[in-house]
Every structure is written in structure tokens, then in C-alpha cells.
Amino acid sequence: MKHEFRVTVGPVGFRIGSDWKRPLDQLSALYADYPAPDIPDFTVRLFAQRPWRRFIRPSVMIGGDYMLPDAAPLSLAHGLLAAEMGMNLQMALGQRRYLLLHASAVERDGRALLMTGHSGAGKSTLSALLGERGWRFMGDEFALIDLDSGALHAFPRLVSLKNEAIAVMEGEVQSDRLGPLMRDTPKGDIRHLRPPKEAVARMREPAKPALLLFPRFGHAVDIRKVGEAEIFVRLTQASTNYVALGEAGFDALSSLVRTIPTRAVDYPDTESAVASVERLWAELAE
């Protein structure tokens, strides 16, 4: 392709090719602290919907090793989002070395807190916020569970802040860690946040899963136990490659469910969520 950028996130190397330079310039600025892989695991391609549309009302199509045939094009102003979506897509469809959970993760003392839930539940915002409050940020989108050891590997890509989360984090970090504000994308307003330097420097350090939370934003404070069978079902739904991994995935997931303390946490605002997380961590983390 015309332009190329390479980046390593956690244990995974990406090559991103693009018909346009601008999305890659934005990516390389935000991923400045990340090493480049020698041999990428996945390739993402951002290409023009039609050759002439590279110039006239350019629309970015997302492709790569793995593609979704009906993915709608994005406008070039949303090119950075397209690159991030492309990287997520390669992971979701192609990753076979780890059990992939759609979950955010932070670490303290070698132990990891995992958070998973539906879109809008706040797992991404919470992980970003905790990453500024004494925890090591390990990822806001995918948690990689080692199929042999059960350890959690970090995947600290750019944090994709959506809608209300943008203001929460603008109040928390220096503005040079934030990418361009992209309005009215298919996912609403999006602004990317560069994880703390420590999260990137230590991204090769795995952690032991020690606490699993199902946060839910917009409800009065409530903390509930969750049965093991329900946890298992919710995590299979949160995994993009559980079925593809077969017995190895079953083994990794059932081992995780049997050993990790788990709670569902409702919260009305992020400060109350942080307080609940700290309390549950002190009480339950193994």
C-alpha cells in the first residue's frame, strides 16, 4: 500500500497500510512510545472505496487478513477510528494464541482486575481512570488469557473514549495524550487517549487474574454475587474466539471461572465506581 505504519501492542504486532497518510500520522503520534514489530502478526488495510474516492469525498474501507464483508466505509476524518477498528477486527477474528475476552484490565502487585460488560457499561472508562489512579493500565478492549498458564497478557492499545467518557478523561490527563475529537462517528463522539507511559513500558508483563467485575453504569450503587454458570455464559459471550479455540478455550475459561472472585457492580457515577472497585479489591482479590 502507499503508506505503512507498524506497531506492537502487548504481545501482538500490527502492520497498517493505508491509501492516505493522515490517519497513519495520527496513529504514529499516539503510538509514539510503542515498539515496531519485526514480523507483524496481523495486517490492516485502509483503502479507498473506489480509486477516485481517494481524493473526492474520501471514504475509508477497512480490510486486512480478516475482513467483514458488509463493513460500512468511514469518512477520512474518522480514519484513525478505522485503523483502530481494523486492529480490533484482526484480533477478534484471527487471534488463536490466547483466549480473547472483550474486557478491560488493570493491574496492581502482579494481580489483575478484569472488567467486562455490554457496550456503555463503563469498563473502558473505568480502566482508563484507574490507570491514572495508581493501577497499571493493561487494556480497555481485549484481555488475553494465556491458554497454558491462565495468566492475563496486556493489550494496552489506545483507549477509545466515547461520548461522556471524553469529558471525564479530559479532566484527568494532559491534553497531549488525547487524539483528535471525532464527532458523529457510527459509535458517537470518539476521542483516543494514549495510555500512561508505564502501561506501555510494562506491556510485556503478564498478571494473575485476581478479581472479575461486571460493571453497569447508570444505576444506584449495588453489588451482587454472580453464579459460576452465569459467569461462564457471560464470558463465552464476551469472548470473540471461544468457539474457535475448542477444548483449549473451554479449559482456560472454566479454570478462570472456578478460581476468580466475581461480582456485578452497579454504579451511578465514575467516582462511586472507583470506590466500589477499591473496596472489592481489598476484600476479595486473590
Binding site: 453464579g227 459460576e228 454458570a229 461462564f232 477444548e247 479449559d251 472454566s254 471461572v257 472456578r258
Partner: peptide
């Protein structure tokens, strides 16, 4: 079959 017992049910 690979069976794992989880609180009251069999996986």
C-alpha cells in the same frame, strides 16, 4: 466429554 462441575450444574 470434558466435564467441569460448577455450582450445581455440569459444564
Amino acid at each position: 466429554r470434558y466435564l467441569v462441575a460448577l455450582d450445581g450444574v455440569a459444564l
